[in-house]
């Protein structure tokens, strides 16, 4: 089995978007970082635009709609204030997503574990594109995601929602790749429990 559904999916929009916005002379992470360290406002804004969608998206899925902006802003503050100490041992993106996941989980911990995402605005989300397969599936997935323990939510957001590889997820979560894989399996199992039988025939699932 070489080809998977994941392979057939288009790359996440965020991968395509920033490239076009970053001028050639700043396309390199290292140059962007250096310019941000010098406090160049334009470079900082470029970095922000490069990562805003994923940072906000991850925070949104992990902490819920109402707190997502606050958390995402905090992440960027940490990014810009911590950039001088970023040595490039990991990818810039990995570091930023790690800050995002940690800020999100930390935010939840502060907010109190009982008050998880819950009815946090999830219901207001726009109609999902998967509607033609199962009209309620996306909103049910949103609800189930919100009900998961935060750690499971994090791995699902990184791997399944954002489409990052296990290697990237492991680097972000600072765990082994094997741990990441087993946690994803458990997280999907929890989701299936929460969702009940879906009875949806996904294309290619039983070839």
């Amino acid at each position: 089995m070489t080809e998977t559904l994941a392979d057939a999916l288009p790359p996440p929009a965020i991968l395509a978007e920033p490239r076009s916005r970053v001028p050639a002379q700043l396309a390199d992470d290292a140059e962007l970082i250096a310019a941000c360290r010098r406090g160049e406002a334009r470079a900082m804004e470029l970095l922000y635009h490069q990562f805003k969608r994923r940072v906000f998206g991850m925070a949104h899925r992990i902490v819920g709609a109402s707190d997502a902006e606050e958390v995402a802003q905090e992440v960027f503050v940490r990014v810009f204030r911590g950039l001088a100490n970023f040595r490039g041992d990991s990818q810039l993106s990995t570091w930023i997503y790690r800050l995002t996941v940690n800020a999100s989980l930390s935010h939840l911990a502060k907010r109190g574990r009982r008050q998880e995402v819950g009815d946090d605005g999830i219901a207001e989300l726009p109609a999902p594109p998967v509607a033609e397969r199962d009209p309620g599936l996306a909103s049910r997935i949103e609800a189930a995601l919100a009900a998961l323990p935060a750690g499971y939510r994090a791995i699902l957001v990184l791997h399944d929602v954002e489409g990052l590889s296990h290697e990237e997820c492991a680097a972000i979560l600072e765990c082994r790749v094997g741990t990441c894989k087993s946690q994803l399996h458990k997280a999907r199992g929890k989701m299936r429990e929460l969702l009940g039988p879906m009875g949806v025939v996904a294309p290619g699932a039983n070839r």
Binding site: L5, A6, L9, L145, D160, V161, G163, M198, V200
Partner: peptide, 8 residues
């Protein structure tokens, strides 16, 4: 599989 695709 449906769940994974739905999340994506």
């Amino acid at each position: 599989a449906a769940l994974r695709d739905g999340l994506r």
